[in-house]
Amino acid sequence: MTSLTSERRNQAGLRGWGGRSLAGIVLIVFVLFFLIPIVWLLFAVTKSSHGLIVSNPFSPGSWADFAANWNQLFGFQGGAVTGWIGNSALYSVGALVITLFVSIPAGYALALTEFKLRNPLLILTLVVMLIPGTALVLPIFLELNTVGLIGTPLSVILPMSFFPFGVYLTYIYFSTSIPRDLLAAARIDGCTELQVFTRIALPLAVPVVALVAFFSFVQNWNNFFLPFIMLPSSDGYPIQVGLTSLLAATPAFNPSSAGSDSIQLPTLALGTIVSILPVLIVFLFSQRFLVSGMTAGGTKE
């Protein structure tokens, strides 16, 4: 009997050891898969276009080459890239502010007050939240086209401000984390409904405000399809759409573009990094809550 158990334990141990190294290999392979492109990108921007092709992909280039790439990128079409970054900031932050202003009260009301249209609105929120963002873009274009908003910043900011996921997060937060008794006590103490929200609920909701702001900003900054459709003129492009202009001016991918204002491969790589830098910074600062699985915490079972 004892020998049997020990034998079994041995087997399990062996299998555990083999399984463990297999698991380790899988983890490492995927770390490489996810990381190699990013690491390579960081090295690529420090090279000349010749160096990019002949040198070791993971060796650093030179500061002079980096500066040259930088100058080429920001000199493109008389500083268009700077304008695109400014546009991205305007659209993302503008939509973010409106999103917070709109979603936090809405989530609060859906969670903690009773009114007739509460259920229909809740279902609408869930359904739209699960629809991919791009599904409504062409219909919204057709709609805004009739009211003549196409090409204005509002045609991007307003649709991005409609952010059901933010309302949903706020709703979950308020309905699970704020005791109703607390609000009732405030009412008894003479708070008006508005004061209950601004003085009691809002100060307690800082974590969820940060969460909604994070998701809204990242999504707005990375949005491609909406501005691509809504903004016909290059002046209004956000950086994500501006990247297509850079790509079109890169002879390596578009041979017809070889000219004075053309973009070399390392410059295009630099453009890619610049386009994601704000989101990357936000990611680095939010890494603790990102990896904690807090995104899933809203729907604890």
Binding site: V102, T113, L117
Partner: peptide, 21 residues
């Protein structure tokens, strides 16, 4: 109900960029 005031802006956006399109 106070709820209507709090959701009004959201409902407006939902109407403009969800239902109407």
């Amino acid at each position: 109900p106070i709820g209507y005031v709090f959701v009004s802006l959201y409902a407006l956006l939902a109407l403009a960029f969800g239902i109407v399109p």
